[in-house]
Design a protein around this nucleic acid. Structure first.
Length: 198
DNA sequence: GTCGAGATTATCT
DNA sequence: GATAATCTCGACC
């Protein structure tokens, strides 16, 4: 059962709690191995930094809900909304290990060469689980989506966020959390400065 | 194995 | 019209 009280804390405290958590969508279950904290208003890298918009409205709402968004036109990323109602904190689900519904996950991600690749990366995780924009704002204790927090905190490491746009100069926050030794967590390739020129 | 560059579209200014 | 919390593929070591 999802303990909503735990999610009312700041993202930085919720993030380690989510490591090892089980996230089930329909018949596919993933054990989260890598997450990233976003402190809304105090975080230049967060979508909520510039204030509430239609897209990030869910983040400003009560915790225990799913915040989804489109990025780069092709990819969906999922967050767990935390902190109290009105505080735009969220934890991005970066990677996980598919522990149930492997066949389903594999068919959704035919390009994955190994099972560890199925949910290694925010957008991949969403595809493997079948999360779409339609699931934005969904209750994490609902019929289709269910989140189970681990009973005990897992071992974890922290480090600087990668992949966050350098536009805000926000790469300085060590708000990435992962479980050491997990094959689904690779030292993520530093985001290449993306140039649309040409 | 690691490194570098392009693709593609919802959302915001 | 510009931007973006990424992924995939190809080249090279």
């Amino acid at each position: 059962m999802l303990d909503r009280v735990l999610l009312e804390r700041p993202a930085l405290e919720v993030a380690p709690l989510l490591l090892g958590a089980m996230l089930r969508v329909d018949d596919v279950t993933v054990r989260l191995t890598e997450v990233e904290a976003y402190q809304g208003e105090a975080d230049p890298g967060s979508h909520a930094f510039r204030g509430p918009t239609r897209r990030n409205a869910v983040m400003f709402g009560p915790p225990g809900h799913l915040y989804t968004y489109f990025t780069y036109g092709m990819h969906v990323c999922a967050n767990v909304v935390c902190s109290a109602d009105g505080t735009p904190s969220a934890v991005l689900l970066r990677a996980g290990e598919v522990v149930e519904g492997l066949d389903r996950a594999r068919s959704r991600r035919p390009t994955s060469r190994s099972d560890a690749d199925l949910a290694r990366g925010p957008a991949r995780l969403c595809v493997a689980l079948g999360i779409t924009l339609d699931d934005g704002g969904a209750d994490l204790a609902g019929p289709r989506i269910r989140l189970d927090l681990p009973t005990a905190a897992s071992d974890f490491a922290t480090g600087p966020r990668t992949g966050v746009s350098g536009a805000g100069g926000s790469n300085a926050y060590p708000w990435r959390f992962w479980m050491p030794g997990e094959p689904t967590v690779s030292s993520y390739r530093p985001a290449a400065p993306r140039s649309r020129s040409r």
